[in-house]
Design a protein around this nucleic acid. Structure first.
Lengths: 341, 341
DNA sequence: CTGTTAGCGCCTTCAC
DNA sequence: GTGAAGGCGCTAACAG
């Protein structure tokens, strides 16, 4: 496999066909002011040489390629994976291709800078508009159509898709409180994200409404990752009295809590109840299946896609910020508080 | 959001900084023959203007971007989704970004042509190498590093990742036969794909080895989709005698069979046993959980990534064709043949 | 109908 | 150290 068997260019085709490059360009772009014979001839040569126009060069001239871009830090994380599926399904309804860009190395030192640059780079060249998933950057460049899913802030022009995080947290907490829990630990999400701040707000508001004092010791700062979830859980477990329930700001963290619990030989929900958020597929198959606040991940991707399409058509969005509904899903990781605790 | 607030170019930066474009280009590319003061100045201006070089223009000159491309027809299909996750995980170990390209409209009339063109286009411009997932095209252009997962043919130069499909099918069939089944229907996969042909081979070989005659009526041509799986199953069910077991060439088809079975009010495995292939996540949570031949999808993605990296480093592959192992997973959709049938 | 002429934004000699 | 000039592959006027 020769590393660089210089790709065949439009010039090569022109030469081989005995015409000028512009003629080739014309048949390439289906202009109808070309005689049938030359057209056929050029087509044949193109076929023979296996020529395809260079994306780079093409998009440098005609600033539009019918491609929408999706930017995410990590395609392998279940949250992003689900969102992508939603986008992938929704895009079927439009004549756009999909280009998903993701950084190899996760956690760059300055992720926000990377995000901003990437949006600018992609949107300035090959992409007609973008969907950015879970960016930590504020003020994403929005000279081109842009929709953000689960944003850090609602600042740039463009569309936003975000769930009713506070309400979801409220519902989850109500469930825990109804089960008799009073001593509920909280593992927060990545504080840069609006969703994390809103969920925390929900946690505190629920407590307040129930007349339960807020204990700072019960609140830990996670970052939506499994390992950090585990670490926070370990801290929470070392408290005395130990919390009788833990609300993890997302399912990945909750999975980490499960790790810590297993290690500490504590049973769920016997010894301690656990509540997650997101309802990623894993949460249903883990043992025990997680009670969690569902966020319609696929739908969020689909909604973002539709918003972006409107933006591309120069339409104005009915709502710049679209709130997707959350829903409590009770499975087996939560139970009534045991008497005597 | 102005549709085209012309992105800031290197020229703008040069003007604002009072230098020439070549100087800006130099600091951009970290050349050291620029005085510290101009360098700082230019940096500042770049920052202020929020400039990023255009991917298109850049990759037109310097033919390498540290980006690997992945081409697939549909990101929302579970098979592809799992493979992507594997790729996404593996790429963390390298300093490459990931660019996944997928057609909006699935099933173009001439998908093979699309694939070939896309590989050529991407690899000729922004991408340093590519992984193509489940292509129907033969002879993919391989002037650039290329690895194919689940290929149609093993023809182009480049690497291939494909499971031991025949062996897997053999194992699955052995299981069915051991349960007493003799009358086993087969729903084939997309005949363009090597995997489909190998699985069918496994089906027939297993029968032959067991001394069971091959009945053409029991063999249906599917295409790996759920709807087609359902259609084939309906045909199979109208046969008399009805098969006592069905081997679907992939899980998606098997899901379609389940649809047909539910509609016909037949129980699994009571009335009929069902065997799938792939072990996509869905197969574990459906009712009843599917007995299936596992293909390590994530690992296939990871393996392809590692092969591509070798190719990029000009190393030669120990094996041009990498066979990933399959494994029978017995769940609850298969059971012993009922007496009296 | 078709060829010629400009660039798109960038990088790379080659001078100064 | 820095600027000017040429060209990467392509499209879009403008001429004929």
């Amino acid at each position: 496999m020769p590393r660089k068997k210089s790709a065949v260019t439009i010039q090569d085709v022109a030469d081989a066909a005995g015409v000028s490059v512009s003629t080739v360009s014309r048949v390439l772009n289906g202009k109808d002011d070309v005689s049938q014979v030359t057209k056929d001839n050029v087509q044949r040569v193109i076929e023979e040489l296996g020529y395809t126009s260079s994306l780079a060069a093409r998009s440098m001239r005609s600033h539009s390629n019918n491609v929408i871009g999706v930017l995410m830090v990590d395609v392998s994380d279940p949250f992003s994976a689900e969102v992508v599926r939603g986008i992938g399904e929704a895009i079927h309804d439009y004549r756009y291709d999909l280009l998903i860009y993701s950084s190899g190395r996760p956690q760059t030192r300055s992720e926000a800078v990377w995000e901003r640059n990437q949006v600018r780079t992609l949107n300035g060249s090959i992409t007609d508009g973008m969907i950015v998933v879970t960016p930590v950057a504020q003020n994403l460049p929005s000279n081109y159509p842009l929709v953000v899913i689960d944003p850090a802030f609602i600042d740039s022009a463009g569309g936003y898709v975000i769930s009713t995080n506070r309400e979801g947290a409220l519902a989850g907490m109500a469930h825990l409180i109804a089960l008799g829990h009073r001593h509920i630990g909280f593992i927060g999400g990545l504080a840069e994200l609006l969703s994390a701040r809103e969920r925390r707000q929900g946690y505190e508001d629920a407590l307040r409404q129930a007349g339960i004092p807020i204990d700072p010791l019960l609140i830990r700062s996670g970052d939506y990752t499994r390992v950090q979830g585990r670490r926070c859980a370990e801290e929470l477990l070392s408290l005395s009295p130990r919390p009788t329930a833990i609300f993890a700001a997302n399912d990945r963290s909750a999975l980490g809590v499960l790790d810590a619990l297993a290690r500490a030989d504590l049973s769920v929900p016997g010894d301690i109840s656990l509540l997650g958020f997101d309802n990623i597929p894993e949460s249903a198959v883990v043992q025990p299946p997680l009670t969690t606040v569902e966020q319609p991940l696929r739908e969020m991707g689909a909604t973002a896609t539709r918003m972006l399409m409107k933006l591309l058509r120069q339409e104005t969005l009915p709502d710049r910020v679209f709130r997707t509904p959350t829903r409590l899903i009770v499975r087996q990781s939560t139970g009534a508080m045991r008497a005597g605790l």
